[in-house]
Design a protein around this nucleic acid. Structure first.
Lengths: 148, 148
DNA sequence: CTTCTTGGTTTAGTAGCTATACCATAAATC
DNA sequence: GATTTATGGTATAGCTACTAAACCAAGAAG
């Protein structure tokens, strides 16, 4: 468990580092996160993004405003509905998104190589344990919320 | 990897929830973190705690001030050295620390039970992989810092 | 047509940092 | 021993990344 917590905090530290996207602008952690989510799930409205990210819609609104200011995201409304706001990446934004995905895959390559060294049943076990931990944390979260 | 990231964000969400320590005071995430570290490593000075936690000494100073205000931590100076400030838990603080440890062990019990179901070599593999990930993230962190 | 609900934005306030300036004490140098 | 340098700690200003609440507008329901 100490190892897990250590890994989490190191991962968090890595996530925090801002990424330069042009000579003018950096993308901060939450902004990059948002951009990637928009890239993954095009055509969701603000409220749905808020749910997907686990934050309030106000938070999404704020981050999107910044991303729009940096020219990587665009809001738009569907013809029929004048209320809901949908989000999509601009050309620039799409480039950054794809770049993120690529560098992400590249950094994860060593992990895949390492895993290839081990027999399949062990790797399956690892995945099963991660799933178990995921479900475990879900349950803990629910229990904590009930206790408030 | 998706599973890992999901687990991380759920773990972070759990960590964020403030803990009531009395009718008057809550302990926020950073404060609880600090309190636990002081409990684990008594008699370190502020600078060493900053290193141990991976934050600046200013940050430690701020959190400690709050913890002192809530009556769970005390600063003191060793007789000989008038410069360094050491940290220790008060009676109340020690109680909270031990309570954290106990509830922590209790929440982790299901995980231990789950692990007991599997043969030793698989558990060892799990630990090895976590160590590998830890080292991997360490390296990535260093490389990122160099690139700035 | 009026009321209620839903989607979005804005604002004020907060935690949790960092960086910087600053002060005091200890260590090193002359 | 006096002066300079290094070290330990604090205080302040500023930032990200949120939340909660007030608010506004558009749809849906009555």
């Amino acid at each position: 468990m100490e190892l897990f917590i250590g890994a989490v905090s190191k991962y968090n530290a890595l996530e925090k580092i801002p990424v330069k996207v042009s000579s003018e602008h950096d993308l901060y952690h939450s902004e990059r996160h948002m951009l990637d989510k928009i890239g993954d799930h095009p055509a969701l409205n603000v409220t749905d993004f808020a749910k997907a990210l686990g934050v309030t819609k106000g938070a999404v609104s704020q981050v999107v405003k910044k991303l729009e200011g940096k020219g990587v995201v665009r809001r738009y409304k569907s013809g029929t509905n004048e209320k809901e706001v949908f989000l999509e990446l601009t050309e620039t934004g799409r480039g950054i998104y794809l770049d993120h995905k690529k560098t992400n895959d590249k950094t994860l390559e060593p992990l895949l190589d390492e895993l290839k060294k081990y027999p399949d049943d062990k790797v399956q076990f690892l995945i099963a344990m991660f799933k178990w931990i995921d479900g475990f944390l879900n349950q803990s979260g629910k229990r904590m919320k009930e206790h408030l």
